[in-house]
Design a binder for these strands. Structure first.
Lengths: 205, 205
DNA sequence: CGATTTTTTGAATCATATCAACGTACGTGG
DNA sequence: CCACGTACGTTGATATGATTCAAAAAATCG
């Protein structure tokens, strides 16, 4: 079925977190899903709106950012096979403090707040899933905070090169800079510094 | 009963999050609880150890901090009627990246990792609780991140005065500075700046 | 190819860190 | 009760690193 096709990635994701999800359980979940597409640059959530869905990214790339004094500060990027949302806004059903924007052509699978509550009620395993998603998000945030606290900017940029090299391919540098919490100029200077440093290291051998 | 006495605050907390928790359910939870006391200055969790419990604070005050280049960076304070833990370490059963220290004489109620898994299995509502706790932690972390991203240090100090005035009473200034991510000297200067600014404002009236 | 966007570079400026010294408060032992 | 030591807070001088503003160079796209 075509409907199945659209949700196959999400089904795999569910099954990886809930190994004993039944077909009936999945059918209930699937009945609550809707698919949306966004062109590159389109806004998915705007500050002040309530974030009405949690959205699983089938393909594409989404950035989450704050707008402060007219300047963007990127909080995170979400690529395919991850959930994206202003999860705080979604959970509390309060206005979002952030923007979510597709920065590539993007397809997402939405679950509404009411739909998720129904899933929690009718599919007992799903509370486990909800717990695991919140825990994962929390752990990610810890990682980020720890890295901000413990690492120099040079180290954080190097880690990004190691751990998310695809970001450098898919995202302009000024967004990387924003994500690292510095200006594009500062990042440019860091790159130069790292390049010359690694030449110096190479010369030692 | 004396045992009940020690857990009464936690029971109230559970009931606030799980209104339909049965007495049987609570009894199962309670059978997994243990109480520990720490003198002011005692370490609850050290970096490199696995955080074996989530701990509900009956009374006292706990700080969570990183040690980086021999310097402490405080991440959060936990006072009575809150959970404290290196929750990342606890969830993943991996070595902690942080320290937890009692900075007042403190009494906590522990739930072990194994104990919590058993609670999740035997008390269905508890998955909901676990989800809510993870969600709460996540939301708190969002708040913190948002505030770090959007506010000047002056604003963050002012917000702290408004929102957690008890911290100023119970915690030395150099810890507040560490929590705000600045040196004690910088905080001292901020205080002076704010004082003179508010005099100037007062003079307008 | 030309137009626009993105990145790089330079110089001036600002904020905070750092180093060092001094002031203050508190508590303990003589 | 006072004197001293320790811990905490304040203040000043200097250094460091990032930001800002401005402009040139490079890359991208229609």
């Amino acid at each position: 079925m075509i409907a199945n096709e659209k949700h196959s990635q999400l089904k795999a994701y569910y099954q990886s977190l809930m190994p004993d999800l039944t077909e009936e359980g999945w059918a209930i979940c699937e009945s609550k899903l809707t698919v949306r597409k966004f062109k590159k640059g389109a806004m998915i959530v705007k500050e002040g709106e309530i974030c009405k869905h949690v959205s699983f990214v089938n393909f594409g790339l989404v950035r989450m950012y704050h707008l402060v004094d007219g300047k963007e500060k990127i909080v995170m990027f979400c690529n395919e096979n991850n959930y994206t949302a202003d999860y705080r806004s979604f959970l509390m059903q309060e206005p979002a403090l952030t923007y979510l924007q597709a920065i590539e052509d993007t397809e997402i699978v939405d679950t509404s707040f009411a739909g998720l509550q129904e899933i929690y009620q009718r599919v007992p395993e799903a509370n486990f899933l909800g717990r695991r998603i919140a825990e994962e998000l929390f752990i990610d945030m810890c990682r980020r905070t720890t890295s901000d606290a413990n690492e120099t900017i040079d180290e954080r940029y190097n880690n990004l090169i190691d751990q998310q090299p695809w970001l450098l391919q898919r995202v302009p540098q000024y967004m990387i800079a924003s994500y690292l919490g510095i200006t594009p100029q500062a990042l440019s200077r860091i790159k130069r510094r790292i390049k010359t440093t690694s030449y110096q290291l190479a010369a030692v051998y």
